[in-house]
């Protein structure tokens, strides 16, 4: 592992109480949710992680506390390595501080996460839905949201399904 990367991991672990785990040569730091922005600032300014490569969330549905994990993947164009942050988000009132102030590119990604997972970002400048129509109900990528597929009609059950199928405007 790179020297600067290991010192970064060590520093973040000490300063912000990050728990380090490694899987398939990928390092993940579990950071307390209220310190994510501060940790990212240190990572950007002191350890040359100049890009937020990806930001997403994972829903562990039946579990409520924490229900969500926020996943931040940082990239350093000088070290050419990735580093992952994870932060727990509660299920009852899912919210976390925005990353937009540190990495502007988080703007749309957080709008997407709000749209699809319903996690609110405190301090975000433009908290509107990104992908779904503005009046859509629910957050589709949550595990308790149904896939919403249409039943496939076969010859033996065509009429049975046809009755309960939604009809559009013709």
């Amino acid at each position: 592992m790179n020297e600067l990367l290991s010192s970064a991991i060590k520093a973040l672990g000490e300063k912000f109480g990050g728990q380090v785990s490694e899987f398939r040569d990928e390092v993940t730091l579990l950071i307390p949710p209220d310190k994510v922005t501060a940790a990212a600032t240190v990572l950007r300014d002191e350890f040359t992680f100049d890009m937020l490569s990806a930001e997403t969330a994972v829903d562990y549905c039946p579990q409520t506390n924490p229900r969500f994990h926020m996943v931040y993947i940082f990239y350093s164009t000088t070290l050419k390595v990735y580093l992952t942050f994870r932060a727990h988000v509660n299920g009852d009132d899912p919210k976390i501080a925005t990353m937009e102030t540190v990495y502007p590119s988080a703007n749309w990604r957080e709008r997407e996460i709000w749209d699809l997972f319903g996690i609110r970002f405190e301090g975000h400048s433009d908290m509107r839905r990104l992908l779904m129509p503005p009046n859509w109900e629910g957050h589709p990528l949550r595990k308790d949201y149904p896939l919403g597929y249409e039943e496939v009609q076969y010859s033996f059950n065509f009429d049975e399904i046809d009755v309960r199928k939604p009809k559009g405007v013709r």
């Binding site: 779904m132 589709p140 949201y145 149904p146 896939l147 919403g148 597929y149 249409e150 496939v152 009809k167 559009g168 405007v169």
Partner: peptide
């Protein structure tokens, strides 16, 4: 007919509208 995408986001065939 919606193709491979049988889900919440895609209209199952444009003949619905």
């Amino acid at each position: 007919c919606g193709g491979v995408f049988n889900n919440y986001a895609i209209l199952q065939g444009v003949d619905e509208i």
